[in-house]
Simulated assay, not measured.
Amino acid sequence: MMRLYALRITDCGFTPMADETAGTTCLLINIGHVLTRVAYCSPVEGVARLVALAEASTTASGPDGLLEGVRRAVTNLEALLGRRLLDEEGRLRRPCDADGHGVGGAVVTTSLAWPLRVALAGVARDYSLASAFRAVSVPHVTLVRMVALDASTRRWETDDLQALVESPPAVLVLVGGVDGGPVAPICDLAQALGAAYSALPENTRPTVVYAGNVQAHRPLSAALSGVVDLHLVSNVRPSLGVEYLGDLRAEVMRLFYRRALGWPEALQAVEQWAGTSVRYDLDAMARTLRFTARRHSLKRGVLGVDVGGSGCRLLWVQPAGAPLSWATPYGTGAGLGALRELNDPTAVLR
């Protein structure tokens, strides 16, 4: 287990300062819905070891927002360690001094956001839609629906379109066609969805990302601009033999951190205080599980379970390929309310 902590330090973006070695101390911080947890890791015989853990209630209000809960957790950690990690003004002491006070670096993750609900709609199931699926198969995304053009009738199924409107995802990804090919099918879909979404309250309409034939950019903008937030990115299948996933994946990640986290100013304050970027905790968990799968040659992968106060999440990671995630609203704190609503006592039995 301690070697897994060493992996997370390296993979989550911790870079020692110029005058420090790779074996320096590190502060690990995770901000959850209910609790903020901190861990202190220090090198022992060349391997990063977990020395102490502490926690405090996550704070959402107050002048310092989330940072107040982080500082309280670190203060609790200082009492266990007998070392000073904060200065008189509550700032993180970097780097370590000769007496062992301070830390060499910090890693900050958060589980404040649920995975982003994404739906896919595309013309060719085996080409552009398959590429879009690979692009959005990341830990912070839950795929809620895939809609493909009917191959025999070349029409969109009414039930599929109705589902996209009655239960709209947070993000709808549209794909279809190689660059320079026909645009009629995807434009027909955009016009139908534009008319339907215009009748919905603005705060329930999805963000639409188009990653298909670039020839469709202008008609799609005409059909959807002013109705939904439309983002145009590079085609995932510019030609039949070429697949390009980078722009679509980056855009979905950007939307996740912008829309799903919902704590931009509070998290920016934590980033500035810690001197590092805040990462989604499932990203770190996926890297740890992949390391485990590769280290022990587990071809079928590793299943990770995160039981939290407001919900539970599962993450399945294989030695290669995209990780798959699934979330539920059932937890050990605020998530107990969702269990009560089931009205089924057996739901909590082992």
Rank of each mutant, 00 (worst) to 15 (best):
E20M: 08
G23F: 15
L28E: 00
V38P: 00
E45A: 15
G46C: 09
R49H: 14
V70K: 00
A73P: 01
V74A: 01
V74T: 02
A79M: 10
L81Q: 01
R83S: 11
R84C: 10
R94N: 03
A98F: 15
H101I: 05
G102R: 10
A106D: 01
L112R: 05
A113I: 08
W114G: 05
A124Y: 10
Y127F: 15
S128R: 06
R134N: 06
A135Y: 09
H140R: 15
H140V: 08
R145S: 05
S152G: 11
S152I: 15
A170S: 09
G180K: 12
G194E: 04
A195S: 12
L200G: 01
T204C: 10
P206L: 06
T207W: 09
V209S: 00
Y210S: 03
H217K: 13
H217V: 14
V227M: 05
V228R: 02
L232G: 03
P238Y: 12
A250Y: 12
L255S: 02
A260N: 05
L261R: 10
L261S: 04
L261P: 00
A266S: 07
Q268P: 03
Q272C: 01
A274Y: 03
A274P: 03
V278L: 02
Y280A: 01
M285G: 03
A286V: 10
R290Y: 13
F291L: 04
L298I: 07
K299C: 12
G311P: 08
A320T: 12
A320N: 05
A334M: 11
D344S: 09
V348A: 07
